[in-house]
Simulated scan of single mutants.
Amino acid sequence: MTPKTQNELPSLRESLEQHGLMAKKSFGQHFLLDLNITRKIVRLGGPFDGDVVIEVGPGPGGLTRALLESEARSVLAIEKDARFIELLSELNDAYGARFDVIEADAVKADERALLAERDLGEAAHLVSNLPYNVGTPLLIKWLTGPWQPLSMTLMFQLEVALRVVAPVDDNDYGRLSVIAQVLCDCEKLMDLPARAFTPPPKVDSAVVKLTPKADRPDAQLIKNLEKVTAAAFGQRRKMLRASLKPLGGEALLEKAGIDPTARAETISPDQFIQLSRVHLQTLQSTSNHYFRE
């Protein structure tokens, strides 16, 4: 096949037809083929001037094309579905060294290593129309893992997006809200109806931007936060003195300055990180006492 220039690229629908491709239900794929929408997502998620962007699950490349039209220095796409590699290589022909596509599972991918292998440094933004079936696991990986992106502009099914940005005491407020908001400033950028996708999913979607906070807790405290929130929201209708009983219950809550009769959905992210800090200090104190004995 003759390499194509940027002006010669076929439309996204034409590309899919030429390669005989359809969305794969088992991969949770729903394609966004309207370049006006993908350009808006990139505009709201940016600026990416001079920076590297990693895209997960590019599929036919609608969001990829918008990213390559931006001022991003390089765009690195991670695609699990081997069927799309040849189609995406047409973008490689058109945009040269600015674009690279990797066939890999993003859940298992080491972003830091992928960047280093290409001499792109360590810093990169994440932009993705996330496959529905792995959206939350990928977000938790990027929030709590060893590699920290410069920003994340991510599309989720609407119910997940609402959980990410939900304020305390909201019906959607939960464990994901706390972890995301402790670590990032979170903002819902735009809603997308199901009809915007091919094929249309059964639910609407939304784009969320997460910008990591400068005062990030250390890895040990983040891990403990995951433990505390899992216990608190695992029995969210119970008072915290009951749901957190295995972790110290009423005594722990009083040390953290939190009402033991409160329920998880009424506790702010700042209070949860304080609770996690006190719990960790209690564990460390108990451990030190044990060794002194």
Rank of each mutant, 00 (worst) to 15 (best):
G20Q: 09
E90Y: 12
D215C: 00
K209D: 07
I258K: 05
F99Y: 10
S287R: 10
D81C: 15
I222D: 08
E254D: 09
G121W: 00
I258P: 03
R98P: 04
G96I: 01
E90A: 05
P217A: 10
V228N: 04
D93R: 00
R39G: 00
N224R: 08
P149V: 01
G248L: 00
A262R: 08
R163A: 08
V53M: 07
L33H: 05
Q274R: 14
L143D: 11
N92E: 15
P3M: 01
E103G: 13
T229C: 00
M239T: 01
D169R: 14
D51I: 00
I179R: 02
S26N: 14
G121Q: 01
Y173W: 13
K238V: 00
K213N: 06
E254I: 10
D259G: 02
V127L: 11
P200L: 08
L115C: 03
V134P: 03
A66F: 14
A242Q: 09
L88I: 03
I37M: 03
A206P: 07
V101W: 02
R175S: 11
S287H: 07
I258D: 06
M190A: 14
N36Y: 10
V160I: 15
A124Q: 05
K25W: 08
P60A: 08
R112H: 05
D218F: 04
A219V: 14
G145T: 07
A194H: 10
R43Q: 12
S243I: 05
L138I: 02
R216T: 15
V75P: 02
V278A: 08
Q148S: 06
P131K: 04
P212L: 10
L280R: 12
G28M: 02
P260H: 09
I258V: 11
F84D: 12
M152G: 09
M155N: 08
L9F: 09
G59V: 02
A66E: 11
M190L: 15
L150Q: 10
K4C: 02
